Amino acid sequence: MQTKKVLFVLTSANKAANGKITGQWMEEFAAPYYLLSDNGVDITIASPKGGAITVDPLSLQPQFMAPSVERILEDKVALNRLQTTLKLEDMNDADYDAIYYPGGHGPMWDLPQNEKSIALLEAFHNSGRPTALVCHAPAALENVKDVNGQPLVKGKKISAFTNSEEIAGNTTDMVPYMLEDMLIEKGADFVKGPDWLPFSVQDGNLISGQNPASAEFVGRKVLAALGIDIATPQEA
């Protein structure tokens, strides 16, 4: 079987408007990265600016130290890839079978208006290829359109970081808007599970997850959509 290729799109943002350090949430990158790569998927990592990305320091604190995070902190090859991401502008959607956006607050600041990101998301989704995002990364869908020129999320089931999680986490000053509100305003059928527990949803080829704990389940749905079979544990 031909090797499947997945494009990971990361954020180049490293500060929120309030000046606090933000960036990529490590578990949301690491969990799908290992899930896919361990199952034979070839991963390319790109970001708007290319080069080194910033990992949100909070995501490396002990309370967020998921097994995938522990693993990547000992993985010099993977860590080097986060320091040498390719430029998003140079990516050709035809080279990949699926696209995945991990979250963190960073994606809310540099991806919604990024024309290349918008074009890639439209190309993947409108051609029926798996298009996956988790936590705050669905902000990248804000200006993405379907083949009829309507918001891509309109009428589709989608999950993302919820208002209640943003409030409970005391991070409302880290975002330009409440993500749940934006998606609903765009016409999405917003679905969610209990705060902080794994929850993901698939509507056609659009795959989304609610929070960091959901990243592995998003990765599993991507594998399934690519025709790669692994055991799927029950999720909340």
Rank of each mutant, 00 (worst) to 15 (best):
Q2C: 00
V9P: 02
L10R: 14
S12Y: 02
N14D: 13
A16D: 12
A17K: 14
K20R: 14
I21C: 10
I21M: 11
E27R: 14
E28T: 03
A30V: 07
A31G: 09
A31F: 01
A31E: 12
Y33L: 00
L35N: 09
G40F: 04
G51C: 08
T54N: 04
V55N: 03
D56N: 09
L60C: 11
L60I: 14
Q61H: 14
F64Q: 08
P67M: 08
D75A: 05
V77G: 03
N80P: 00
R81W: 00
Q83R: 14
L86P: 08
L86M: 14
K87A: 07
Y96C: 11
A98T: 09
Y101T: 03
Y101F: 15
P102F: 09
H105D: 02
W109L: 08
L111G: 06
L111Q: 11
P112Q: 11
Q113R: 10
S117G: 04
I118T: 15
A119F: 12
L121T: 14
E122K: 15
A123N: 15
F124V: 08
H125E: 09
N126Q: 10
G128D: 10
T131R: 04
A132W: 07
A132K: 05
V134M: 05
H136R: 12
P138M: 07
A140C: 08
A140Q: 10
E142C: 12
K145G: 00
G149L: 11
Q150P: 00
P151A: 01
L152G: 14
L152R: 13
V153H: 15
K154S: 15
K156M: 06
I158H: 12
I158M: 14
I158G: 13
N163R: 14
N163H: 12
E165W: 09
E165S: 10
I167G: 01
G169K: 07
T171M: 08
P176C: 05
E180Q: 13
E180I: 01
E180N: 02
L183T: 01
D189P: 00
K192D: 04
K192V: 02
D195A: 14
P198L: 03
V201H: 13
V201W: 07
Q202R: 13
Q202A: 06
N205G: 05
A215P: 06
F217I: 02
F217W: 12
R220N: 00
R220F: 02
K221N: 11
L223N: 06
L223T: 05
A225K: 13
I228F: 11
T232L: 03
T232C: 03
